[in-house]
Design a protein around this nucleic acid. Structure first.
Lengths: 210, 210, 210, 210
DNA sequence: CATGAATGAGGGTTCATTCAT
DNA sequence: CATGAATGAACCCTCATTCAT
């Protein structure tokens, strides 16, 4: 009975992910409000009503999608922590992780950030989920912060700007690249962008004393 | 006849601005889709139908709001260009302009960026307005770019990162601050934030060699 | 004081007629519901609100228009009664009167007939006006009926069909011509049409024994 | 699978017809603009939104209704073509078909004619439907024309009036009867009316030489 | 579990009508 | 008397959500 259950569980989870994949595609392309449940269902190969077997809400879908993506991101970022590597390399790795995770769906991250704007009116159970959600969002910041802290500990950072702020700025910079891509309607050269960002981070506009 | 007409025109414009003020408040607080025309009208002291005397659409309201805000911003930024000032001071002044312009309505800028995402599908006359809109959005980038270029010309910048990218990064950093404020649901200390940003920009994490 | 009053009265009436002219144009072209008060006002050279100085309602405008047109028609038809003419000539004259009266605005007559459909829900004072209106509509029928009766009295008519029915049929036939014109979007040759109608009336499809 | 599908299709069609029945009732009674979708839905036993599962628009409902009624009419008229019958009997049969088809909803036919007036401004796909619609409207004329032509071929008709005009006049006459009924707010004696019309058609006012 | 059908709540928009100037 | 501005009521339509099958 147990293996049967787990298999069913697995199937269920697979279908959930199918739905989330469809949602990711559409949300990142058209935005949250412009995407209808019917669209998602159609793209996932389900009927609109079927979605409600897997998620409670439209919002629930978005939230789970956010959670999934952010978890993926965080796990990738964690893998970048390698004490044997020079500290900035770890940071660069993390940035690359962001680009890789959101890859084609770059604009999704933009929406994630903005979503919390509209979603404050919700309540009770949803509040909890929002907490998770906000937590993960900070997760990225947290990882970045950690990376900066590590660099600082190794004497590579002397700025008076707090690690947390550095992390925040970095995430803003990354989003600015995503935004450029969206407006240009095409993905750019990831390597170059990361390089450029690293240059800017390490020495600002002053030039690279590394 | 002429003075009478201009006065009436002025009144009309004033009312338009009242509506836009209401819209700014609500859009920046609840987001575009969550804000109903009824809300805007009520807050502006009009009836829903009255809005249509001043704007063609809900979208039209948003677009005009965006134009107004971005124009205000640009004019403020332009005023920062002072050749007698040290170049970075000009830049700092521009950043301050952004903070001042969006002040309480910080999250509005975030929405502006995202709005263009969903709005590409529109048509004809509106397309023109969208162009204006996108143009102004780039306006901010343009000003920043110019400021960086000026600094570079004066030998204050040696980074290999292009002025345009610097500008982009900077605007991303500013937005990251706005986002923090939104999540914390309160405006922070502008002076400190600007200081922090300036530090980061000038020398990155390496520390301040200024 | 009296001549002054009458002059003012005259002006007022003239303006009323201007409005009715505009209404006739638009109602006959676009139909009652598709025509807005703003359209009428604009074409008449007034502001929308001004219409309410002259008429109580949109419906009131239509009703007065109907009355005016139908009165014109009736007076023209009355003038056709000439005892010295052969009876069928009188009838033909009346038909011509209809074509002349509605001339360019042929489709207006179609709408007049149909208007009573939607307008039954009205009340009190309006009821009275409706009576007038219905009365005039029957007016045309009445005139035709009279013409047929006259012919019959002179031994030119032997059909068992009542004069009233003949009149009704005739008016239906006329409208059918108007309808053709409308669908073809152009006025046809009035003379020919009248001729054709007269032929049909006098001897039906059997051929003309006149 | 096939029978299941056809059954579902049948149910769907039945519901569509329920809606059209409700629409016929209300349109013919109150007119197009005075009838709200809510009214139609309520009378058909649906919610307003449900209508949109079956029809695209309010206009779409009207158009489909028109098509249905006119198709019914045409098929009935076609069945009247019987070579073994005396030709005028066929014509009479066709007239009866019109009365039977529109029966209680006599005023609907009046509206059909008028609707095409306002509906020229529409677009693309709808244009096609409008064509169908106009085609069917002419359909009735066409059948009548054919009937007259048949009579003429058999030497029963010698009038110089063209078959087409005869048909047009006839349809006008029929509508005039419908209009009488509407104003009297009751259906009259169909047999008598048809008789009267036939008399008039065959020999006009001259009297019946048949 | 999956679906087609149905719904309620709400949104944007129009327009005849009123009122202050 | 004439008007620009404002309104309220109504309309059409959409969409997330539910329910019977």
């Amino acid at each position: 009975m147990d293996p049967k259950l787990t298999r069913q569980q697995a199937i269920r989870e697979a279908k959930q992910n199918l739905i989330l994949d469809a949602a990711r595609e559409l949300f990142s392309c058209k935005g949250y409000h412009e995407t209808g449940l019917e669209d998602i269902a159609a793209r996932a190969g389900f009927s609109k009503a079927a979605l409600y077997s897997y998620f409670a809400d439209k919002e629930d879908i978005f939230l789970h999608l956010a959670l999934r993506e952010l978890d993926t991101l965080q796990s990738k970022m964690c893998q970048c922590q390698n004490e044997n590597q020079p500290p900035f390399v770890n940071l660069e790795c993390m940035i690359k992780a962001v680009f890789e995770t959101f890859g084609e769906h770059f604009s999704l991250l933009l929406q994630l950030s903005n979503f919390s704007i509209a979603a404050i009116h919700t309540q009770s159970k949803r509040q909890q989920m929002h907490k998770h959600y906000a937590l993960r969002l900070r997760g990225m910041l947290h990882e970045f912060t950690g990376a900066f802290a590590a660099c600082r500990k190794l004497g590579k950072i002397h700025t008076s700007v707090s690690d947390e702020n550095c992390a925040r700025y970095l995430s803003g910079m990354i989003k600015s690249v995503f935004l450029k891509w969206r407006l240009e309607e095409k993905v750019g050269d990831v390597e170059k962008e990361i390089d450029s960002i690293m240059h800017f981070i390490t020495s600002g506009v002053a030039g690279d004393p590394r």
